[in-house]
Design a protein around this nucleic acid. Structure first.
Lengths: 226, 226
DNA sequence: CCCGGTTTGTTCTCCTGTTCACAAACTCCT
DNA sequence: AGGAGTTTGTGAACAGGAGAACAAACCGGG
């Protein structure tokens, strides 16, 4: 609570500064709550929700306490109410327009991924530098030239871009995105992007995850055989 | 170091216990070194490599120090030598057979992803429960029934499985994988898997990453307007 | 109204990871 | 050989997150 003085909150708060580790878990809680709600649960305890989310219950309670006191002692949390509060805190009660650049195999998969739409993200454009791909229609959206980026971003108010190009093109795409005013980038290309301050980049790297698994796998094998 | 008593290391070490955070960065260093090598660099300083990998140079040096003293003071690191050492530590000098279950959009993309092969992972089988998908050939590998899992795992010595199924099927697939002896799972399904001790699970969730970006994006917008 | 049972919110402690700063070690030049 | 310049490896301080534990708050029954 004493950190509120630091963040110079303006009018109504509702946005204290939440630790990164907690932010990363909120979507997991959100999903677990959605599942619980679909199963007909009206309330749930921190223990139940923590188990559904795969975390420690003390950690869950601490995470939720950053958002406010939305539980009732002796009872638990109202599933739908808590779900709404988390959704609002993350910002997925509103609709986020998203552009995807690079419509190869991965781009196709992303464009077709239903989990985006159902969670408040709307794919408003698919862009690709290859003219052979233009006028192709993927998931009901037609693929357009990369140069249309600026107009689309301006017209639709896009703040989030997804990069699914080969590694070599990724930095150029990122630069163009930043120039157009995009300030959050999800990067699937296996390369390190450099962007100006104020722009957020998150990276998803398929082969890195496998390599981490391989490391542990190797150690397991060693421990057994040696 | 006091945790070594727990892990019951046997004969020659060469495998001190490396912090998880470091393990997660080693593949990034590996990729940066590969790029440097292709650019013809013979040696590099921690500053250069750190910049290429997008991390602090002190952190890089500390990370590398867990592997051993592979640098030369006043000079830097031999690119190819360091690259080999990291590859060996991760375990990607050997070949890892991998099975992918669930050949939808994402499964297709994964099967075609060249980054796996080039990093020591070989997709030995594609499995899908849907009979309509069988006999389809993706990336030179034909799609087979899910029930073939056990035989494939046994014949090919598969230790790593990738789940790219819908959420509802993921836990069942994971159970079967574990039963067959798979001990590392990369899960793309948006669900929390529960697995017995000794089995590693890593999760890649596309929509969670977007939600994290949305949270920060929302805060940026708030800070500006309010 | 009071009491036992339950569950949250929070404090405190521990541990992991990050960063700074510097001694040790190496090269090159004179 | 010696000294200036460079870069690694690491000790130490610092920050942040995880988990145990407990007081505060709520419900229901008598």
């Amino acid at each position: 609570m004493e950190t509120r003085a630091l963040t110079a909150r303006t009018s109504n708060d509702s946005a204290r500064d939440i630790p990164e580790a907690t932010v990363a878990r909120l979507p997991v809680y959100l999903r677990a709550l959605t599942t619980l709600s679909e199963e007909g649960a009206g309330t749930c305890s921190s223990e139940e929700l923590a188990s559904a989310a795969g975390v420690n219950s003390a950690k869950l309670r601490k995470d939720l306490s950053y958002l406010g006191s939305y539980g009732t002692r002796g009872v638990g949390y109202d599933v739908d109410y808590l779900r709404y509060q988390i959704a609002r805190e993350i910002g997925v009660t509103q609709d986020w327009p998203v552009v995807i650049v690079g419509i190869g195999n991965l781009g196709h998969a992303l464009a077709n991924y239903s989990g985006f739409r159902s969670r408040g993200f709307r794919v408003v454009a698919l862009l690709d530098a290859d003219p052979n791909r233009h006028d192709e229609v993927v998931a009901g959206v037609d693929v357009r030239p990369f140069d249309d980026l600026e107009q689309i971003v301006r017209d639709q108010g896009v703040a989030i871009g997804v990069i699914a190009t080969p590694a070599l093109a990724a930095q150029d795409v990122a630069n163009r995105m930043v120039d157009c005013g995009i300030s959050s980038i999800l990067n699937f290309a296996p390369t390190v992007l450099s962007v100006p301050e104020g722009v957020d980049v998150r990276k998803v790297d398929l082969s890195i995850e496998l390599q981490i698994l391989a490391y542990h796998e190797q150690r397991k094998a060693h421990g057994v055989t040696a």
